[in-house]
Structure formats: structure tokens, C-alpha cells
Amino acid sequence: MRDEQKGWKDIPIAGVCWKPATEYHTGDWRTFKPVRDQAKCTKCLLCPMICPDTAIKWNKATEDIEFDYNFCKGCGICAHECPVDAIKMVREGA
């Protein structure tokens, strides 16, 4: 929503999406942000699978998981499901 705002003459009809959904940063809505304790994390890779927004990815280069905060909506599922309690939900701006 941060991009330029087009007028009615410049957008496709019927609400047809003229750019991919990935350009819409749903992470804007977040109240709580998941923060991982690297020391506790066993890299079990459960959280990348269960995140409903695929906002947790495996980074081959670093051989570690990483959060994409552009799309993490802060639902807290990852924190709830992490078997070793490695993720804490922290209030944004706190």
C-alpha cells in the first residue's frame, strides 16, 4: 500500500491484480514480532513449514532460518509451535 496510488483510468477493471501479491507488504499490520533465540533453536525446520504466510525461509548460504518481516503478520503460530520455545513474540516498537 506504500506504492504510488493510481487513478481509476489506469488500473485494470474487475479488481484484476496488476502486480504480484508479494508487492503488498502484509507485515505492515503486525503488532507482535517473532524474535528467535539462536542459541535455543535446533533448526528443526518446523516453523518454516507451519508459518501461514511462508515468512520463515531456509537460507542456504547461512544454513539458517530467517524471518521475512515484510510478510510476517505476527500471528504467533511459530512461537506457539516451536518445540524448544526458541521464539518470543515482542511488541513492535517496544
Partner: peptide, 12 residues
């Protein structure tokens, strides 16, 4: 033709 999410023109 209508613009799709990749900026291409495709049939509506």
C-alpha cells in the same frame, strides 16, 4: 486484453 500481475497483457 487486461494487464495481469506480471504486467503482461492477457485476455480478460
Amino acid at each position: 486484453l487486461i494487464t495481469n500481475h506480471n504486467g503482461e497483457k492477457v485476455p480478460f
